[in-house]
Amino acid sequence: MKKLRILTVGVGGQGILLFSKILGEACLKADIPVAMSEVHGMAQRGGVVETNIVMGGIKSPLIAKGEADVLVGLEPVETLRALPRTRKGTVIVSSTDPVVPQIVKDGFAKYPELPPLFEKLKELFNKVYLFPGEQLAREAGTSRALNVVTLGALTGTGILPFSKEDMVEAIKSTVKPQFLEANLKAFELGFNAVTA
């Protein structure tokens, strides 16, 4: 079975744990061996959050420097921050909508100008999928669905070892019923953003 290491990064509050849980549930439904790790507790308070998901029989629930096959970013600066974990050929899937840190708002640090950095990213990697995640989530009816938009985009890349239907089933079994409709729409918008 093909081994796949997916590193997902973002900011506390973006729903990255649920993102990973749904991805894991989809593996479970498709009978693909999966292991993952996440960070809870103090690190979540507005800080950088990451999850590591490995499929296909890998046991280590952590992805080291140069090991990520896919880098998923729910926030563009976090995508850039995680680049040392990539290698040549890593697939990049990232939202382009920034979450500006408090420290920038307070004037103690600078948030970089993104468009030239996106260009650089496209030069360096063959497969770069960028999409306005928050904008699409709002379009779907809730800005909280950024995580599911991103799942849609990741699924749209075609790199996952299971079908789109498996993923939709995983969303249905994980997301609370009252939010399901918006989330399924968010998923489609993310999927279309990278396949269209």
């Binding site: 900011v11 506390g12 103090m42 690190a43 979540q44 308070r45 507005g46 800080g47 950088v48 420097k65 140069g66 090991e67 600066v77 850039l80 921050r81 680049l83 040392p84 990539t86 290698r87 040549k88 050929g89 890593t90 840190p101 408090q102 420290i103 920038v104 640090a109 600078k110 948030y111 970089p112 950095l117 650089k120 360096l124 990697f125």
Partner: peptide, 21 residues
């Protein structure tokens, strides 16, 4: 050794220390 990309072009990124909500 994995072939790692040159990321020297990435500027200093703003940190995100955990904060009070």
């Amino acid at each position: 050794q994995p072939e790692t990309p040159d990321v020297s072009w990435v500027p200093d990124l703003p940190p995100r220390p955990p904060t009070l909500c």
